[in-house]
Amino acid sequence: MDLSVDLGGLCLKNPVMSASGTFGYGLEFSSFGDLKELGAIVVKGLSLKPKKGNPVPRIAETPCGMLNAIGLQNIGIENFLKDKLPFLPWKETPVVVNLYAQSVPEFGVLAGILSDEPGIAALEVNISCPNVREGGVQFGQNAKAAAAVVSEAKRKCGVKPLIIKLSPNVTDIRSIALAVQGAGADMISLINTLGGMAVDVYTRKPRLANVFGGLSGPAIKPVALKMVYEVCSEVDIPVIGLGGISSAEDVLEFILVGAHAVQVGTANFLRPDFIFDLIRELPQAMSRTGIASLEELRGGLETVEPSPVCA
């Protein structure tokens, strides 16, 4: 059984990465499984300076999903490199840093800091966070702004592969995907959370202090699958699919619509050993679908018509 994937400059022993913000800095999960078994570890979004995040309540459960408005609380890039990275098994498992900044030059500075950091395998640029006032999704909703971030990060990140994480909160995801590909992105990951809210009719209050949050979990999988399919049909660079993955079959569904690799997010909250079990189950799921390598399945969706995108 061949689980390995080559993302062009980033080779993984299996296609399953953790999704940013749902796996802490990785170390939180080391009691529950061997971090070396992951395809890659993607850590919480990091900014130049530590960030305190939003007021509580920051999370709310919804049917088969959840809303979050964490507001990118993080310890800052320098503290991560000093206090967390040395304890991660970066020699055996690629560590990917997810980045957040408020301006184009700041993305460049972050990329520069990481450009010659041996423990970092790739950069994932988050232009899609819905939970912060500045930066975040404002770059992800406009093709020009997205391209500007990518060019700047690409200029500063040296040889590190650059993943751009897209927001689903747009009218045409394909145009954004093409723009970031054109600006030099090495890979695309999608989707980030969908904008949403929840209210309590008895207290007449929003369930999140921030009022709005990002929806994630199994509830969003159909949306994610469609967007990943659309983007895969449009771009030539490898695509990392995510959104609601909660089983080995789900992983294969994203591969079937064209993704090279996947990330597991909210499902990590079901049980902290979840991702390790999912990876262990992947070979069985592959044999059930009759494949011996992911290559055999990738992009193999059989549609009757060249699929119409509107519905």
């Binding site: 939180e28 305190k52 995040g53 509580v56 920051r58 959840m66 909250f269």
Partner: peptide, 28 residues
């Protein structure tokens, strides 16, 4: 008692504020 999703310090949902204005995970 705070609202918790992961219970292991990963989601940052359950934070409380310390006297030093730091937000720390109450599950951890």
């Amino acid at each position: 008692e705070t609202r918790m999703a992961c219970g292991v310090g990963a989601c940052l949902g359950c934070v409380v504020k310390t006297n030093e204005e730091e937000m720390v995970q109450s599950c951890l």
